[in-house]
Every structure is written in C-alpha cells, then in structure tokens.
Nucleic acid binder design. Structure first.
Lengths: 176, 176
DNA sequence: CAAGTATATGAAGGATCCTTCAGTTTTTTG
DNA sequence: CAAAAAACTGAAGGATCCTTCATATACTTG
C-alpha cells in the first residue's frame, strides 16, 4: 500500500492512526464487556481469572501492534479515545463486581478503576519490554493472584459468605 | 534560557532529554532504595505502605514533569535507562521482601517485578489523566490495600507466623 | 472492447523541528 | 578599568516528516 492511497481513506495522519487505535481499543473493550457479562454472580476469584484472561489474550494477540499503539495513544486525539474506552471498560467491570456472590464493594467506581489500572499498567510494562526475562510465563498467573487477593479484601463477613468462601480476611482496612 | 545555550551543555536533543529523564529516574530509584532499606524485617503490610508512600510521593512531587517524561521514555535511549533503573528498584524491593517477618517468597524476582509494575502502572494511568475524577484521594490507599493483600498471599503457615500474623490465607495457589 | 469510473502510486512541495554559528552580553582576571 | 574568557542568543541552514497531485493501473459497464 502506498502513501498516496492512505490519504484517499483518511484526511490526514492523525485520523489514520486514530482509526487504528480505535479499532484496537474497541476489540479490547468488547473482550472485557463479554467476559464481565459472562461472569456476573460468580465469586470474585473467578471474576479475576476471567478478567485477566480476557485482557491479556486481547492485548497479546498482536503484541507488536499493541506496543506500537502506546505511542499513538499520547498523540492528538489519543487521550480522548482512551478515556472513552476506559470509561466503558470500567463500567463493565463495575457491573460485574456489583453482582459478586462473595463480596460487597463500598466504593465500586474506585475499586473498578483500580482493577483496570492494574491490568492495563502491568500488561503495558510487560509489552514495553521493561519486565525481566521470563516474565511472560508468570504474568497472567500473578495478575490473577494479585487481583483475587485485592478483591477478596472486600469479602462479606462469615455469616454471608458461608456458601463457598475460603478462609477469610478481615473485612475492612487490612493494614497498619 | 535560549536554544543555543542548550547545545553548549548537551551535544543534541536526545542527550538533553536523556539527562533530564535520568535525573528523574535516579531520584525515584533513590526514594525506593531508601524506603526498602528502612523497612527490612518488617511485616509485609508495612512494606507495602512504605513502598507506595515513597513511590507516589516521588512521582507526584512534580506531576507535570513526570507526565511529560513518559513521552521521552519511549524515545532513543529511553528504554535502556528505564530498564536499568527498573532493575535497580526491583532489586531493592526484592532485598526488602526477602527479609519479611511474616512471609516467604518462593519466586522473589517475579513477585518483586510484579509489585513494581503495579506501582508504576497505576501511577502512570493516574498521571496520564485516564483515571476517573476524584481518584487522587484514593490512589495511595487503594494501592496499599492491593499490594498488602497480594503480599499476604505469600504469608507463612500458622506455625511460623504465630508472632503477629492476622488471620491467614492459604500459602500457595490462591485461586481456582 | 472501448469508454468511464474508481483506486493506486511516489516524486515534489510544504511544514515542522533539530542544529549550527557569527555576533552580543556577562563574568573573570591582571 | 581594560582585556580576555566564558556564556548567551536567535536567525539561518539542514534534515525529517506530512500532504498533495499529476499520472498510471485496475475494475465496471454498455
């Protein structure tokens, strides 16, 4: 494909890159949407697994593309697109979390945003190659462990989680 | 300061930006180093608090600068600098974690890298403005909660943590 | 198959950004 | 204070990248 042809489909460089970025983000948002809808009402550990699996699979389907688009994300129009898609994904996560069988989230928006930012941040660090060698094998497993632990921090008290909960944590303010 | 003067101190644009980036990364690495050394032998919850506090404070000291440097980090020379500094910080975290009073880490390099990537990723997401409004107030607290929960996933069994441990988790493979 | 339409191509023009350097200002020295 | 050294300045030159457009190719239609 030649330079001139591109300008027949997009008015300028920014529009072209924005379109590519939008396609990429949309496919990821759809994957997250789907995973979240499929796992409503499940325990948080399953939610964490599903979310991590969906996000990692979507991002690593074409690692080169994902990586290259990080540069585009910072250019004109990028931040707006990202914010919009991110809002959508965080909403999907919030809807799923709200239905958790074994946890209740006092500050759903904050928790959802946190979950998403951890997912996106870790995968980005990995893709940009800053991660130590051999990290790929551990990424998904560690993310599941991390998010499960975080979400279980919000677990319901002994009375409510009698059905299937593992040995519990304190319900609130876990540190200090 | 004029354009010409800059070229009296740096041979070219890349060298100038690399110097600024290096200064920034060094100050952050020092903050992490210090926090890690100060908290050896402590329980993991205190380690998490200290790490989060140090990293967040260092990154948010000059938010505009931190944010602008993300762009530089992707340019020529950036990735090398980042990788070097990151290796240093992950090593510091590993040294601290290895001395935890209430936990043992089977795969120290993986866990340390994970902790760092979560810290860096979340703060970046926040700085780039993709985070929802009012997230600033929650960032630090949520990060502490998240990392504490993750690290406590590696807690020693009932026998070994008799000294001060809270109600424990399973020692290994916490999900599925 | 000829004429018409849609799409493809890449060299040339223009815009933007990096770098240089001749001349000026400030500081130091004897 | 005069002379020399050091540091500063910004317009001009050069390099790189974005965009256009005249021309070529491929496809459609009657």
């Amino acid at each position: 494909m030649s330079v001139g042809s591109l300008y027949q489909y997009y008015p300028n460089r920014d529009a072209l890159l924005a379109a590519v970025l939008e396609g990429h983000l949309t496919s990821i948002a759809c994957a997250i949407d789907h995973a979240c809808r499929e796992h409503r009402g499940k325990p948080v550990s399953e939610m964490a697994s599903a979310l991590v699996a969906a996000f990692v699979a979507a991002k690593l389907r074409d690692p080169e593309k994902s990586k290259a688009l990080y540069a585009v994300a910072a250019e004109r129009g990028g931040p707006e697109l990202i914010t919009a898609m991110q809002t959508r994904m965080i909403a999907a996560i919030a809807a799923m979390l709200a239905s958790a069988a074994d946890a209740h989230f006092e500050e759903l928006p904050v928790t959802s945003a946190m979950v998403f930012s951890v997912l996106a941040g870790s995968v980005r660090a990995f893709l940009e190659g800053h991660a130590p060698a051999g990290f790929e094998a551990h990424l998904e497993g560690q993310l599941v462990r991390l998010l499960t632990a975080y979400l279980q921090t919000h677990q319901l008290g002994p009375a409510a989680r009698a059905i299937d909960g593992p040995v519990g944590l304190k319900t609130k303010s876990p540190n200090r």
